[in-house]
C-alpha cells in the first residue's frame, strides 16, 4: 500500500460521513432553491427563479406586473444583520477589556481566568438562554430587585423584545470574542507598551496606538466568530424574542413548516450562507497581512 493510498483510506470514513451529511445536503438545498414549491411542502422538479426572486421582491397581489420590494423579508434581513452587528459590538466592548485583563495576569493565573470564561461557553445553549430568561423575565431577577428597591412599580417588559435577543446572543457568544482576542494579546510584548509610554504616549494613546493595532487579528477573528452564529441564530430569537421578532433563521424554518415553500426556504438558507461567506472573506482579507507579519516576527 502506498502512502497516498493509506492516507485516503484513513480519510475515507470522515469524507464519507461529511459528504453525505454535511456537504451533500447543502448541494440539495442549492438545487431546491431553483425549483417550484410542491403543494403540500416539498418541491416539483421544474426550474424556477421565483424563490430567489421573492427573497427580496414581491408581486402586487392584484397586478403581478407590479414588482415591489418584499418589505417583510427586508425587515427581517435587516433585523438579523443589525442584531448580529450589535451583538458583535457588545461582545467587543465587554470582551476587549476582559481579554486584556486575562492576558496581563501573571502566567500562573491566566489559565484559571480563561477557564472561567470557557465554562459558560461549554454550558448547554438552552441552559444559558434559560438563565437569561430567568434574569430578565417580568418576575425575574432584575425586575424583582428593582421593584423591591422601589425603583419601579411595574415590571419592565424585557423578555420577548429585540433587546432580550441582543442580551441573550451577547451572553452566549461572548467567549467566542474573548478567546481569539486573548490569543492575540498574549503575544503582545509588554515592553512595547513601556516603549510607547516612554515615547510620550499617555495611557489612552498607548492603548490606541499599540494595544489596539496589535490586538487587531484577534479582534477581527473574534468579530467573525461572533457574527456568524449571531446572524444564523435560531434558538435565541425563538426563546427570547417575541412572535414578531423574527430573525432570518426563524424565517427559514417558517418556509419548511407552515409556509410550505421549500424553494424559498432553500433560497433564504443560501442567502444566509452567502452572508456568512461574506463575513469570512472580510476576515481573510483583514487577517492575511497580519499572519504574514507574525510569521516573520
Amino acid at each position: 500500500m502506498t502512502a497516498a493510498q493509506r492516507r485516503w483510506l484513513l480519510l475515507a470514513p470522515a469524507v464519507a460521513i461529511l459528504a453525505c451529511v454535511a456537504a451533500g445536503p447543502l448541494l440539495v438545498m442549492l438545487v431546491y432553491s431553483f425549483l417550484e414549491p410542491g403543494e403540500f411542502g416539498g418541491v416539483r422538479p421544474a426550474f424556477s427563479l421565483d424563490a430567489w426572486f421573492s427573497v427580496l421582491f414581491a408581486r402586487d397581489m392584484f397586478d403581478p406586473e407590479i414588482v415591489e420590494p418584499n418589505i417583510a423579508h427586508l425587515a427581517i434581513l435587516w433585523r438579523s444583520v443589525s442584531l448580529a452587528l450589535q451583538t458583535t459590538l457588545v461582545c467587543i466592548v465587554l470582551g476587549f477589556p476582559t481579554a486584556w485583563f486575562i492576558a496581563t495576569r501573571p502566567r500562573g493565573t491566566r489559565e484559571l481566568w480563561l477557564f472561567l470564561v470557557t465554562i459558560p461557553f461549554w454550558t448547554n445553549l438552552l441552559v444559558r438562554t434559560f438563565a437569561i430568561q430567568e434574569v430578565i423575565r417580568n418576575r425575574g431577577l432584575v425586575n424583582t430587585l428593582l421593584m423591591q428597591a422601589g425603583v419601579i412599580d411595574e415590571p419592565i417588559q424585557m423578555l420577548y423584545t429585540d433587546f432580550a435577543v441582543l442580551v441573550g446572543m451577547a451572553y452566549v457568544f461572548l467567549p467566542l470574542m474573548v478567546l481569539p482576542l486573548y490569543a492575540a494579546m498574549e503575544r503582545v510584548d509588554r515592553r512595547l507598551l513601556e516603549a510607547a509610554r516612554d515615547l510620550y504616549a499617555s495611557r489612552w494613546r498607548m492603548f490606541r496606538e499599540v494595544v489596539l493595532p496589535l490586538s487587531r487579528p484577534g479582534l477581527v477573528a473574534g468579530s467573525v466568530l461572533v457574527f456568524i452564529p449571531a446572524i444564523g441564530a435560531w434558538v435565541t430569537p425563538r426563546l427570547l424574542g417575541g412572535g414578531r421578532n423574527l430573525m432570518l433563521g426563524n424565517l427559514i424554518e417558517l418556509q419548511f413548516g407552515q409556509g410550505r415553500n421549500w424553494p424559498l426556504g432553500a433560497a433564504l438558507s443560501m442567502t444566509l450562507l452567502a452572508l456568512v461567506l461574506v463575513a469570512l472573506l472580510v476576515y481573510l482579507r483583514a487577517v492575511d497581512p497580519d499572519t504574514r507579519r507574525r510569521d516573520h516576527g
Binding site: 510584548d189 515592553r191 516603549a195 510607547a196 496589535l214 507579519r293
Partner: peptide, 11 residues
C-alpha cells in the same frame, strides 16, 4: 529608553 531586545513596534 533603548530597550533590551529593542521593543520596536512590529506594526
Amino acid at each position: 529608553t533603548v530597550f533590551q531586545q529593542y521593543a520596536l513596534f512590529p506594526h
